[in-house]
Design a protein around this nucleic acid. Structure first.
Length: 485
RNA sequence: GCCGCUAUCGUCUAGUUCGGUCUAGGACGCCAGGUUCUCAUCCUGGUAACCCGGGUUCAAAUCCCGGUGGCGGUACCA
């Protein structure tokens, strides 16, 4: 029987969660759900110096905000950090004894060794290798120290790291779920540090030990880890552990083809929440590097992606993060978002009847969330400032326009309450009336629309009139008439 | 430099496993036309790509060889 599918998202709490990290989390989530497995959050904070206070809390908050629920990992209960799941703790700094034990075992079986080399020696070594164009890496100086010397050094209180005893020949070949077979010659691999002199493990050791202990079946992570894959694989082998399956995701690149960085705009997953709907962002980044067989482009929620998701349909090459498509997708998502929720999200202080009238006009046009308040502001304010000349249609004259507006006002005043019940009713009646008077839509409707909106470009004139209601409509026309000399 | 990964329209991609149905399809963007009082929506059409050079073959985006470009790694960071 096949073991249960278990995947993890394992960020470091070293700052704001990157949008690329969010995509890694998404793919892990989709893979887990697709296979009825577990999605686990693990925090990799083995580097004490780089750990940022509050970053862990932000990771949890962000994952929640995007709706990527995990089955196990640290959770926030109020302001308190707790955990769920029975493979914890899920924060690496609380798992030190596991790594210590692993290191000890490796040392005892001779698969790792203590290295007493100083930073100075290591730097000098690197420099000379660079000068000679040699492959960089540790030269194995401490690889075969006599036991007596090791004892002496330890007794003398010398600092040491623990290095992996990398085989000097052969190669490691691994099937990556996305890339197929990848292979690495051992000879160019160095004896990587497994345990730092402060007693903390490096990523390499901690990630292998934890993935094993947490029974992770598939490691889905960024391509930047591919070069250290053979090391990880060999560590599993050394322990005689069953290695998980691996999938290395392509990177997300900036429009300048570089790794996505601050210079290219927002990189933090939380920044996008300001301008875009979470599901629109997820829709966008999911398709950046993955595409379903059916070529579907629109997913209202991540859960709609689950059925279509196939990990081997993820692309190998890096994808450029082009925000134009995100704008388009956000527009599509906006149109389908429940109006009440949306009002809450962008903090619109309007009652529900106003929302029902106003929002559809904005949603037809908005790409970013912040476009919405801008698009309906002319409806809310009583102070619409515009140049009177704007009222006059192309090739028309001021006095005629003024007369037209007066006629429209009189006509609308007469219009009964049953016509004011919908934009469509107002429209049908008004279009007939204009025709009956031998006028063109342009000479009548343009001034009306500007009078009501104050804008050169705006939503449909009848939508506006209906949203404004009879009273406001008439008073805005009055203002327009008065502004024309 | 060394190691690894990678390469189809401006961008995201389909097609590459099993060579012909690909004068390379879709989406975004952009352009034009239609609908329309303006904008947006909607509809129609257009724009634009197989990294380069050899080879195999009746036939190559697809197979082989050799280049080149891009990205990643090269830490007691992850």
């Amino acid at each position: 029987m096949i073991n249960k599918i278990r995947v993890r998202f394992a960020p470091s709490p070293t700052g704001s969660m990157h949008i690329g990290g969010l995509r890694t989390a998404l793919y892990n989530y989709l893979f887990a759900k697709k296979n009825h497995g577990a999605f686990i959050l693990r925090i990799e904070d083995t580097d004490q110096k780089r750990t940022v206070p509050g970053a862990l809390e932000e990771i949890i908050t962000i994952l929640n905000a995007y709706g990527l629920a995990y089955d196990e990992g640290p959770i926030l209960v109020g302001n308190n950090l707790e955990e769920k799941g029975n493979h914890g703790p899920y924060v690496q700094s609380k798992r030190l004894e596991h790594y210590k034990k692993a290191t000890k075992e490796l040392l005892e079986q001779g698969s790792a060794y203590r290295c007493f080399c100083t930073t100075e020696r290591l730097n000098a070594l690197r420099q000379s290798q660079e000068k000679q164009n040699l492959p960089p890496g540790y030269d194995g100086f401490c690889r075969n120290l006599p036991n007596a010397e090791i004892e002496r050094n330890i007794k003398a209180g010398m600092n040491f790291v623990v290095r992996f005893m990398m085989p000097r020949e052969g190669k490691t070949e691994i099937i990556d779920l996305i890339r197929g077979q990848v292979s690495f010659n051992h000879i160019v691999l160095e004896d990587a540090v497994l345990q730092k002199s402060d007693g903390f493990p490096t990523y390499h050791l901690a990630n292998v030990v934890d993935d094993h202990l947490m029974e992770i079946s598939h490691v889905i992570r960024g391509e930047e880890w591919l070069p250290s894959l053979p090391l990880h694989f060999l560590i599993y082998k050394t322990f005689n552990w069953q290695p998980p399956e691996f999938a290395h995701l392509p990177l997300m690149l900036s429009p300048t083809h570089k790794k996505l960085s601050k210079r290219d705009g927002d990189t933090a997953a939380k920044d996008y929440l300001k301008e875009y709907l979470p599901n629109a962002i997820l829709n966008f980044i999911a398709l950046l590097g993955w595409n379903p067989k059916n070529n579907r482009e629109f997913y209202l929620t991540p859960d709609e992606m689950i059925e279509d998701f196939e990990i081997n349909k993820i692309n190998k090459a890096g994808a450029i993060f082009e925000v134009k498509k995100l704008n388009f997708l956000n527009h599509e998502h906006l149109k389908q978002y429940p109006i009440g929720d949306l009002a809450k999200k962008i903090d619109l202080k309007l009652d529900s009847s106003e929302l029902k009238k106003y929002l559809p006009m904005a949603l037809e046009r908005a790409e970013k969330n912040s476009d919405i308040p801008k698009l309906i502001s002319f409806l809310i304010t009583d102070d619409i400032a515009y140049k009177p000349e704007l009222l006059i249609p192309k090739d028309a004259e001021a006095n005629i326009t003024k007369t037209n507006l007066i006629n429209i006002k009189n006509y609308l005043t007469e219009l009964g309450p049953e016509e004011w019940l919908s934009a469509l009713k107002i429209k049908e009646k008004t279009i007939k009336w204009i025709k009956l008077n031998g006028k063109s839509n342009q000479e009548m409707l343009w001034p009306l629309r500007v009078a009501l909106s104050g804008l050169e470009k705006s939503p449909d004139v009848f939508d506006i009139a209906y949203a404004l209601g009879k009273g406001k409509t008439l008073s805005r026309i009055d203002n327009a008439i008065n502004s024309l000399k």
